[in-house]
């Protein structure tokens, strides 16, 4: 096999071969260092879930990946190039983000909110095209929000609203989706509904990266798990390979039993707590 000089160079510039990753990244808020020399690759077509205790740097990692935080050292790589070399709208066509908190403009209807996801594709003279319409329709179908299209966002339930926000990100039609604690504040049935939706999207070929608080959700739905503590990656891999009692104790300081989930046969974490039988 002949390797051209250009290919060789591109390989030496970036050892990261997947579409998204961070290379030797240090992030800090003011002068407080969150992570140092972190290198992570997000496997293509994976549903990657980042877990870890509060303040372990998992949200910071996600915000770094989504180009919301500029690392003080190192860089984020998107399709082999530094993310900072892209125009912001080009990034927005490759990388979608469901932020932890968003606000809906006054009196906006569901379909109009979803249509906001088309912003990266629009400009002053092309504000609404056939492609925009198609993307919005597909996004609403996927998230089961078509029936809500003409409703006001303010009058929806929490679960419905989160599905609408997801629809907005899907309308962006990005191969990579980043989700910052997408299930927080939802009741259990809406959490599962959303996670199932993410799995569907993953099976359709999208790469998803999520920060989740619930370990069992992470172990059940992730195809790739990244466990972080104090700004470092402690373990990563398929949940069935890496979730052990030792890992949970090391990362969360929690004694537990790991058993097989009777439904999905993925690892299920059962916290021990204090033994009250004595």
């Amino acid at each position: 096999m002949v390797i051209t000089k250009a290919e060789l160079q591109s390989q030496t510039i970036s050892p990261i071969r997947s579409r998204l990753g961070v290379e030797d990244v240090t992030t800090q808020y003011d002068h407080r260092v969150i992570s140092q020399n972190l290198s992570i690759e997000i496997p293509d077509q994976s549903f990657t879930v980042i877990i870890g205790p509060n303040a372990c740097g998992k949200s910071t990692l996600l915000r770094t990946l989504s180009n919301l935080i500029k690392p003080s050292k190192g860089h984020v790589l998107l399709d082999g190039k530094k993310i900072s070399t892209y125009k912001s709208k080009e990034v927005a066509k490759k990388l979608g983000l469901l932020p932890q908190s968003s606000t809906a403009p006054d009196g906006i209807t569901v379909a109009n909110l979803v249509a906001h996801g088309r912003y990266p594709y629009q400009n002053l003279i092309q504000q609404w095209t056939e492609a925009d319409e198609h993307a919005v329709m597909t996004a609403m179908e996927l998230t089961n929000t078509t029936e809500l299209a003409n409703r006001f966002v303010d009058e929806l339930s929490g679960g419905q609203r989160q599905r609408v926000w997801v629809a907005m990100v899907l309308a962006q039609q990005t191969p990579l989706l980043l989700l910052d604690e997408p299930t927080t504040y939802l009741d259990i049935s809406h959490q599962i509904e959303l996670l199932e939706l993410f799995t569907d999207l993953n099976e359709q070929g999208n790469t998803l990266v999520a920060v989740l608080h619930d370990l069992n959700h992470a172990a059940r739905y992730a195809t790739h798990l990244i466990a972080m503590k104090a700004g470092k990656v402690i373990a990563q891999g398929h949940p069935s390979d890496i979730v052990t009692e030792e890992l949970v104790e090391e990362v969360f300081g929690l004694k537990c039993k790991v058993i097989k989930d009777p439904v999905t046969h993925t690892p299920l974490i059962v916290p021990l707590g204090r033994d009250r039988s004595k």
Partner: peptide, 16 residues
Amino acid sequence: REMELGKDAAKSHGVH
């Protein structure tokens, strides 16, 4: 109008 969605969402849509 994008900025009304909040800073994170607006930035992720490509707004400076």
